[in-house]
Design a protein around this nucleic acid. Structure first.
Length: 681
DNA sequence: GAAGAGAGCGCC
DNA sequence: AAAGGGCGCTCTCTTC
């Protein structure tokens, strides 16, 4: 029982606006027992308790099932379930006060209780969940508003171990067997270590369950929706809410010791809610366009495969057959080898050698088309009951701190095929892209004045080209505006892109030479020139790599990415650590902007539908599309400036064709493909 | 027949 | 010896 609460209620005069409050169960009975809320009176008492007693935070857990009995199998190991078909059973609050916890379990099928639940949710205290997504979906499905503050114990745990997902003990001197064993153990520990029980166990929170977790979860999966809840089921729900609540304090202490509390509160936890909402909203696919697209793709695939048989290739999808084909025609010499010694047939290589044999363009075409036609979002296999596709977002799913998108990977849909996604009725689609932001962030993170100046001047690659290739540029061209310079000296400008990105990615002189198709000596010269101009950035990157190795983690502006191995760091690992300073920081700034957009959009009825690393795709009511685009642009650039006041970022608005998502205004790319699949896009 | 490795493509 | 970071997904081919 929360201390002093009973007395307070007894002494308090009855509120004139509400009917007199009844005193609930005695303190002794209330404390650490499960209060099952079945009636409006009991719900009113619950609300009264959380509003009149001091509350530190509230643990929350829900139990639900999906309407469809069986999940849809995407392949042998992946299943899909429709989040819009959630049917909820119950919800539990674990109300934590000063040294007390009071548990409530509520049957969510009693709709008359929902307003009371809302009042609890509106309390401005942190609500603690383990995997908040599930809880949020349940609330939204019932038409409830999410709490203002959400702390996700699973997300915090992920943040505490960022980078350790694929932990490998790559130490010299231990046997191969030992290494494999250690790795297996580490992987198991990671996946199992993120479950509620495992996390609770790690913080020394005792778990005592009347039945096994599996049994109870099973009972919710098989239970008919209308059947009354058993005592065990309600207690199970309440127990999980309580365990979750108990994790919060020790976990926050651990986060504080890791220096990540602030960024979790300020950016990651709100971003968790933002992505959950984005997933909940989903995107609409134009079904008839998808069908036309699939038909065109299949026809084209068959045609290309037929043409390729005359060159002895009966399966154009097999890279091995392509390799054999190249050898047989004496073309293997033109291609480098893969790590396993096979002739490499990757598209980038084929592209530059397209002219050496008529089969090569056909192969390239075949490969590209095959990918999309089978996408479950395009076939309609994973459409929700609301007629929309709900991409699954995994916050901190990537070790770099980025958010992953899966099933489907909407972020990875081919640019030209974006118009398969269409706007909802009455809405328009637009997007705003932060131009060359990773270069700007890299410059700011490592404080390179020169690079910051170039970034701020406009097209950063133009500015770099003017600096690096001064001798090759006629004096009268050196002050040309970006667009004109870009057109006139396209070559020079385009040579700077791999240079700048190379720094961020830790590229080598050898890689650069291969990329630009120039001799190693020349690449080295170019590299040195670049280094001389951007000394601070290059040194900063080098320091970042080396310090991260010794320290054991890289700094991501508030988060930490830990090393994935111990012992001597490979060059590959170093590059990854160095790169995450930039990629991770860029991600956080981007999330921060997204959180603001979500809050600011509300007034307009607009919504974020796809985050794409440095661009936001949104849906806005047609009447305010322009306004939303400008708001988005402003918020994105201002957020960057809040983090890095030296930067003057630019954003590109794309709202010319609001009926479909598109790449740089090419809204008819899919239509053109359907009309003539042999056309190059 | 399942599972994993490898290669390849998509996005940033 | 290789030689640019981060991802998801699908296909082929091999192995058990």
């Amino acid at each position: 029982m929360l201390s002093g609460w009973k007395e307070k209620i007894e002494q308090a005069p009855p509120s004139p606006s509400r009917r007199p409050v009844r005193i609930p169960l005695s303190a002794a009975k209330l404390s650490r027992q499960v209060q099952v809320v079945k009636t409006s009176e009991e719900a009113e008492q619950m609300v009264q308790l959380v509003y009149e007693a001091p509350v530190s935070y509230i643990g929350i857990d829900t139990e639900y099932r999906f309407a469809a009995d069986a999940p849809i199998a995407l392949n042998s190991k992946k299943e899909w379930r429709d989040i819009r078909s959630i049917q909820s059973f119950c919800l539990a609050f674990a109300v934590v006060g000063d040294r007390t916890i009071v548990n409530f379990a509520i049957d969510l099928r009693l709709t008359s209780l929902l307003p009371f639940i809302q009042r609890v949710l509106d309390l401005p205290v942190p609500f603690v969940c383990h995997h908040a997504q599930s809880e949020l979906f349940v609330l939204w499905q019932l038409g409830l508003r999410e709490p203002r503050i959400v702390w996700d114990t699973l997300l915090a745990e992920r943040a505490l171990r960022l980078g350790k997902k694929t932990f490998r003990a790559r130490t010299s001197g231990i046997s191969e067997y030992e290494e494999i064993r250690t790795q297996a153990a580490a992987e198991e520990a990671y996946t199992k270590g993120l479950g509620l029980d495992a996390v609770a166990d790690r913080y020394g929170i005792p778990i005592s369950r009347s039945a096994t977790k599996l049994q109870l979860q099973e009972s919710f999966l098989t239970k008919p929706v209308d059947e009354p809840l058993t005592k065990e089921e309600l207690r199970y729900c309440a127990e999980d809410a309580e365990i979750t609540a108990q994790i919060r304090e020790p976990q926050r202490m651990a986060c504080d010791r890791s220096g990540i509390c602030e960024i979790l509160d300020r950016v990651m936890m709100p971003w968790n809610v933002t992505t959950a909402e984005t997933q909940w909203i989903g995107v609409k696919f134009d079904r008839s366009k998808c069908q036309l697209f699939r038909d065109a793709s299949e026809g084209l695939q068959a045609k290309l495969a037929g043409e390729l048989t005359q060159y002895g290739i009966d399966n154009p999808g097999s890279s091995q057959q392509i390799a054999v084909f190249l050898k047989r025609n004496g073309l293997a010499g033109h291609f480098p080898k893969t790590t396993s010694g096979q002739v490499s047939t990757s598209d980038r290589l084929l592209e530059t050698r397209e002219h050496i044999h008529p089969a090569i363009p056909l192969i390239r075409r075949f490969r590209k088309i095959r990918i999309l036609a089978k996408d479950p979002a395009v076939t309609g296999l994973i459409e929700g009951v609301d007629g929309r596709v709900h991409t699954d977002f995994a916050v901190l799913g990537a070790e770099s701190g980025r958010t992953q998108s899966r099933t489907p990977n909407l972020m990875g849909i081919g640019r030209h095929f974006r118009p398969l996604v269409c706007a909802s009725n009455g809405y328009g689609i637009g997007d705003v892209d932060l131009s060359q932001i990773e270069i700007g962030i890299a410059a700011a993170v490592f404080g390179d004045r020169q690079m910051i100046e170039d970034f701020n001047s406009g097209d950063v690659y133009v500015a770099q080209a003017k600096r690096i290739f001064t001798d090759l540029i006629p004096p009268e061209d050196r002050s040309l505006p970006d667009a004109e310079f870009k057109r006139k000296h396209k070559n020079l400008r385009n040579r700077c892109k791999p240079l700048a990105l190379g720094i961020i990615y830790g590229k080598s002189v050898y890689g650069l030479s291969a990329d630009l198709g120039i001799p190693i000596r020349e690449a080295k010269q170019l590299w040195d020139t670049f280094r001389n101009h951007y000394q601070d950035l290059c040194d900063g990157m080098e320091d970042a790599r080396e310090q991260s190795v010794r320290r054991g983690y890289a700094y991501l502006s508030g988060l930490r990415r830990f090393r994935r191995s111990c012992g001597v760091a490979t060059a590959h690992e170093k590059r990854g650590l160095g790169n995450s300073y930039v990629q991770g920081t860029a991600a956080l700034v981007f999330f921060d902007a997204g959180n603001r957009l979500r809050r600011l959009y509300r007034r307009f009825g607009a919504r974020l539908i796809i985050p794409v690393h440095d661009a936001y795709v949104f849906e806005a009511p047609l009447g305010c599309l322009r306004e939303i685009a400008e708001l988005t642009s402003r918020v994105m650039t201002e957020t960057v400036q809040e983090w890095f006041p030296d930067l003057h970022p630019r954003a590109e608005i794309n709202i010319e064709h609001p009926k479909f998502w598109n790449y740089e205004g090419n809204a008819d790319s899919v239509d053109r493909f359907i009309a003539d699949p042999t056309l190059q896009l």
